[in-house]
Design a protein around this nucleic acid. Structure first.
Lengths: 211, 211
DNA sequence: TCAATATTTATATCGGGAATAAATATCGAC
DNA sequence: GTCGATATTTATTCCCGATATAAATATTGA
């Protein structure tokens, strides 16, 4: 059975670890809490922590990692005939409206703690670059035109721009939410920013900065 | 005096460290060589290694890091009235022609060793994402329009796209050079790739992928 | 209840990196 | 060239993340 006691316990342990860890990190900072300490407070052994999370940073970043496949999924799920950029714009605006955490436009206290923690911890910021890279690679696969051969450069370039825009927009929202603004306040600007970003991407920036 | 014995010795030590380290890394792989071993072989103490390089990875990545400021410099040095994208296209094509290492289009054996080493060592790949991020931040500063306020979103978006394109083009070249092709062979494709990339960026990708 | 399997644990070890203070080398001024 | 100020290197110690191994324990389906 896929839903027995074992699975339930695992989920529970996983949550116990990240719960305890987040609490300690908040109190004293990521670097000043050892994995051994987390394990002790969670009532398990240090080894078990690494059993659930490949690295200390992943205890915090787990929820973010779940979204690495989003851009690829958007490309794959787009309406036939719809340009990819348009599909991304739609998808992002929809998520903004729903205050989806992955847009950064969400001021839930628990999420805020996580965002603050990440922003203050360089190694975790670095890990996010890794997520972004994986996002991009998955998107390349989703966009790849088989007729263009195994190395569709155009798909790579487009994927790079879309992923970059996605993360930039998200980053802007995160920055403001961390700065103390409420999601509701930021929302109009977030929509405007997204539209600006997708406009620039759709229409090109060939004439930018001719000063 | 800025050019005394002290400075000369420092440069010499620095080179000794990276020379010895690269040799060992090539032989046995990055992870199978300890910093202590590098220090021993270079005839210095382990502490001194960390004195010269903040982290083990930086022993290899030093030369790459020197180019983080390139995009910002291009923006700052562009001809008056020239669009930024045009300036970047020119700069990249010039560097391609000169087989500049930072374009990836350079098959010098020593460089090749470094590229291979990096590509096989995930933590170093990650560090490069960090360089890219710094590149982008510097470019934002260079592009920022004071009239647009302290957070020129347009500049951020443009910087993101330019930096992304820059690294993507570089990555394509590196991939092929690592694959064993010669710079001369790759050159025509690299020029075509760059032009495609800058065209897409200049004119936009609004109609891409409407299948 | 039992045997097969998955998970957790204890234990040992490695190596990167920081902190400290002592030793050594280089500097510029005389 | 000598000397005191300043940089640099060094030895030493320590912490902690991460891995490997094998033993112990829990969960499973029969």
């Amino acid at each position: 059975m896929s839903d027995g006691l074992r699975e339930r316990k695992k989920l529970q342990t996983r949550r116990a670890i990240s719960g305890v860890a987040l609490e300690l990190f908040r109190e004293r900072g990521f670097d000043n809490v050892s994995v051994a300490e987390i394990a002790a407070k969670a009532g398990i052994s240090k080894m078990t922590v690494f059993n659930y999370f490949p690295a200390k940073e992943d205890i915090v970043l787990g929820p973010l990692e779940e979204h690495v496949g989003d851009p690829a999924a958007i490309a794959e799920g787009k309406a036939p005939g719809e340009p990819v950029v348009a599909a991304f714009r739609r998808a992002f605006l929809e998520r903004l409206e729903g205050r989806a955490p992955e847009t950064g436009l969400n001021d839930d206290p628990a999420l805020l703690q996580v965002l603050n923690l990440i922003s203050e911890t360089p190694p975790m910021v670095v890990r996010i670059f890794g997520f972004r890279h994986r996002s991009e690679q998955l998107l390349v696969e989703a966009l790849r035109d088989p007729a263009a051969g195994p190395h569709d450069l155009r798909a790579r370039l487009v994927a790079g721009h879309l992923t970059g825009l996605w993360y930039t927009l998200q980053g802007e929202n995160v920055r403001r939410i961390i700065g103390g603004e409420r999601a509701g306040e930021v929302y109009p600007d977030a929509v405007a920013a997204a539209n600006l970003g997708f406009d620039l991407l759709a229409d090109g920036i060939g004439d930018y900065g001719a000063w």
